[in-house]
Design a protein around this nucleic acid. Sequence first.
DNA 1: CCTTGAACCTGGGCGC
DNA 2: TGCGCCCAGGTTCAAG
Length: 296
Amino acid sequence: MPELPEVETVRRGLSPHFNGVRIQSLTLNRGDLRFPFPDQFREHVDGSRVVQLRRRAKYLIADLDTGHSVLMHLGMSGSFRVETDQAPSEPLAQDAFHHARGKLINHDHVVFNLETGERIIYNDPRRFGFMLLHPTDALDTHPMLSNLGVEPGGNQLHASYLAERFATKKTPLKAALLDQRIIAGLGNIYVCEALWRAKLSPKRIASTLVRSDSKPTKRLDALTQAIKGVIAQAIDAGGSSLRDHIKADGSMGYFQNAHAVYDQEGCACPRPSCQGVVKRIVQSNRSSFYCASCQR
DNA sequence: CCTTGAACCTGGGCGC
DNA sequence: TGCGCCCAGGTTCAAG
């Protein structure tokens, strides 16, 4: 579920609760998520203070005052919510409990019990997410972070960089943009949306956007701008959804915004002047949505 | 090295 | 109501 904008929204939502706050205790309701929790995870985190909450790509990083950081990923279905002692989970999160095979299933796997009395709860039905512990000063060398490409937001992403990385790429643009070693943080939705904005087919081979003198083509310039644009707007949308309707149960992480093509199979292409219809194809085992009429 | 495809896991939606 | 199948916003790993 969460791509970079959602993770950034979660970071902004949690930061005021976490930053500078001591974690009284950590509750682990099972032994693993995607990976087993680190040895002594609870013992290490108990009593530590969160210095700051950061994000890199789709990873959340909580720097502790112990010299270690908690490296977190939400996978496909992870989410956080905040509860207070005053309002103990009043409107129970819709998905906090689930009835299955006659048993009550709870996907609240981790609870940070803060000194403020608040509880920050991690819920993840599919358990593709994870939490790991790593020395803060060595995070750059962590295998999950060391090979990441540039952030798509801010000023780090340039067409010349993409030209260099795409020059020898024979994969379709869809796969190239999902490759976290090139751009870190894009996922299926925003790749579809960026390609639509740039009028580029997800099937186009990445290297065709690089000129023979290895400079970016105009199309690659357009793609670069499209990527920055969708990400910036999605982060804005997340920020406003956080302000406007952070749910009563404190949940955050997913916000619904209109997609031009993602999940719009069969709908008219929203580009004015385009008569095309949004198609769905499968690439790299993922759905690609695009308009074959205006995306070339 | 590169690229593709399967695997990890649970739940929701749909057709029968 | 139930069952089987397909689908889901991510990443890793094996195999070609």
